[in-house]
Lab assay of single mutants.
Amino acid sequence: MFYPNSPQTSPQLTQIPYGQQYAMMQRQIQQPYHPFATTEPQARLYPYHYQGPIQQEQGGFITQQSTAASPQYVQMRVTPVDQSIMSGYPNQTANGSSSSSFNYNIHPQQQQQQQQQQQQLRHHAMPVGSVPLQDDRYRKQLIVNYLAPDVTSTDLHELFSRFGELDGARIIYDKQTNMSKGYGFVYFCHAEDAKEAVERMSGYEFHGKWLKVGYSTNPLNIVPSNSSPYVHAGSRGAAG
């Protein structure tokens, strides 16, 4: 039997160049792979992502010199942007860049009308829970959420009447099932009393439920100042 490094198959040491006398086997001759043993700084910083320098080929596509990437890492192929796409944008300079302001050559009167329309939209648009300043009635009506099913309009009136005089209180019921929808409205005579009720009743436990109280901004629920107070009856038909 002959071994790869046996004296019968191995040459004389004098015939082997210096430095390879003890590297006779194939696994010894093959050098191990060192990912950080390279002179390129990109490979030292990113050993798993770097795959060699990027070269520009004919046709405008950018390719990489090395083989496919590892399945664990996804390499994105980048193509140059066609400058003709950006030619339609206004205020574009000769080098292809555009300024931040756009001039669509709008007539001054049209621009003024658009600004007025935007101001009107901001004036009428009102986020949930906010209180408008032009109508004091919005500051007097509250919406009470997360009410228990057994709470009546009379219970709601008695709960909030300790903060001040009320114009009314009612629970909203479903017309088909005649069941409470879980929320109601309270109408105060003074805005200061309503503000105190919002601050003190939010998070209050009532009939096993934690109440959420806020201003009601729905104009359909506003009680006119010259109208008669609501009837605080315990029956659902009268309260709904």
Rank of each mutant, 00 (worst) to 15 (best):
Q118G: 11
G234Q: 09
Q30A: 03
L159R: 01
P219K: 00
D174G: 02
N221R: 13
K209N: 02
Y138P: 02
A169G: 02
L133I: 12
L147G: 00
R170F: 02
R170M: 00
S130M: 04
D150I: 15
A94I: 09
F61C: 15
L13H: 09
A233H: 06
M76V: 04
R137Q: 03
Q8V: 12
R162T: 11
L121G: 06
L159N: 00
E158D: 14
H123C: 08
S101Y: 10
Q42A: 05
F185P: 01
S97Q: 10
Q31V: 04
N103I: 06
Y138R: 04
H107Q: 06
K181P: 00
F160R: 01
G203M: 03
S130A: 05
L147A: 02
S180W: 01
P224D: 02
Q20K: 15
P32A: 04
L133H: 15
F102P: 07
C189P: 00
S98I: 11
S100A: 11
F36N: 15
S66P: 08
E165Q: 13
R77T: 03
H207T: 01
G59H: 05
D82R: 15
Q115V: 09
N145T: 02
G129A: 07
V151H: 00
N145M: 02
R137C: 09
T39L: 07
A23W: 03
P7C: 07
P35F: 03
T79D: 09
P219G: 01
I85E: 07
D150M: 14
Y204V: 10
Y46V: 07
Y73L: 08
P11M: 04
V213A: 09
V151S: 00
C189T: 14
F102E: 06
S100C: 12
S130D: 08
S227I: 13
G203R: 02
T39F: 04
T93R: 12
A197R: 01
E57F: 05
M201W: 01
N226W: 07
Q134W: 14
Y50S: 14
Q176V: 13
Q12N: 08
H124T: 08
Y22D: 08
P229Q: 12
A233D: 10
T14E: 05
Y173K: 09
S10V: 06
P149L: 14
T217W: 02
Y73I: 08
M201A: 03
T9W: 03
S87A: 07
T14W: 13
Y73A: 13
A68D: 06
Y104C: 09
Q115P: 07
T154D: 15
Y48G: 15
E199I: 15
E199R: 15
V186N: 01
S161P: 02
I54F: 10
T14P: 09
P219Y: 00
V74F: 09
M86W: 09
E158Q: 13
G182W: 00
N105I: 04
I16G: 11
Q56F: 02
H107A: 05
E165T: 14
H107T: 06
Q120I: 08
S100Y: 12
S98G: 09
G96E: 05
N178Q: 02
T38I: 07
G59R: 12
F61I: 11
Q115H: 10
V186M: 01
L13G: 12
Y50M: 08
Q28K: 15
L45P: 14
M179Y: 15
M179F: 15
K212H: 11
F188E: 00
K181F: 01
N145S: 02
T39Y: 06
A68G: 05
H123G: 08
S98R: 13
G129K: 11
P127M: 06
A238D: 04
Y104N: 11
A94E: 05
M24L: 07
A37S: 08
N218S: 02
V231T: 13
P90N: 11
M24F: 04
P4F: 02
M24Q: 14
S66L: 06
G240S: 06
Y104T: 03
Q115C: 07
S227N: 08
L156G: 00
S84M: 08
K195V: 11
L220S: 03
R236F: 04
G234A: 10
E192I: 09
T79S: 12
H49W: 03
Q55N: 09
Q92Y: 10
P17N: 08
A239V: 10
S216N: 02
P132D: 12
G88T: 08
P132A: 07
H207M: 12
S228E: 04
Q92R: 13
N5M: 06
S99R: 13
P4M: 12
P127Q: 07
P35H: 13
Y48P: 11
A197P: 01
G237V: 12
F2Y: 06
E205I: 15
S70A: 10
R137N: 03
L211A: 00
G182E: 01
Q116Y: 12
Q110H: 13
P224T: 05
Q65G: 08
S70C: 07
Q112E: 06
T154H: 05
Y3M: 10
E158G: 10
Y73S: 15
N226D: 08
S98T: 08
Q28G: 12
Q75V: 00
H207L: 04
D135W: 04
G182V: 02
V128N: 09
V151M: 05
Q109C: 11
G168L: 00
G19L: 04
S225H: 11
A94Y: 11
Y183F: 13
P32V: 04
Q58P: 07
N91Q: 05
Y187K: 00
V128D: 05
R139A: 05
I29D: 07
G96R: 14
Y46R: 15
Q72C: 10
E196T: 13
Q72E: 07
T39P: 11
D150T: 14
S87E: 03
H207D: 01
S180A: 10
K181Q: 03
P224G: 04
P32H: 07
N105K: 12
Q15H: 12
L166D: 00
G203S: 02
G182P: 00
Q65F: 06
I106P: 07
V186A: 15
Q120T: 05
S202H: 05
S180D: 01
G19M: 10
Y18G: 14
P108F: 09
Q30H: 07
Y50E: 10
S10T: 10
P80T: 15
N221F: 14
R122E: 03
P108V: 11
Q20E: 04
E40G: 11
A148Q: 13
I222E: 01
R162E: 05
H107C: 14
A37F: 06
F188V: 00
N221E: 06
Q134E: 07
L159T: 04
A125Q: 04
G88Y: 04
N91S: 09
A197T: 02
Q42D: 08
G208Y: 15
G203Q: 02
D82V: 10
Y33H: 10
Q83I: 05
N178T: 13
T152N: 05
E40Q: 06
P47R: 13
Y146P: 01
G237Q: 12
N178G: 13
Q72I: 03
D167R: 01
G234I: 12
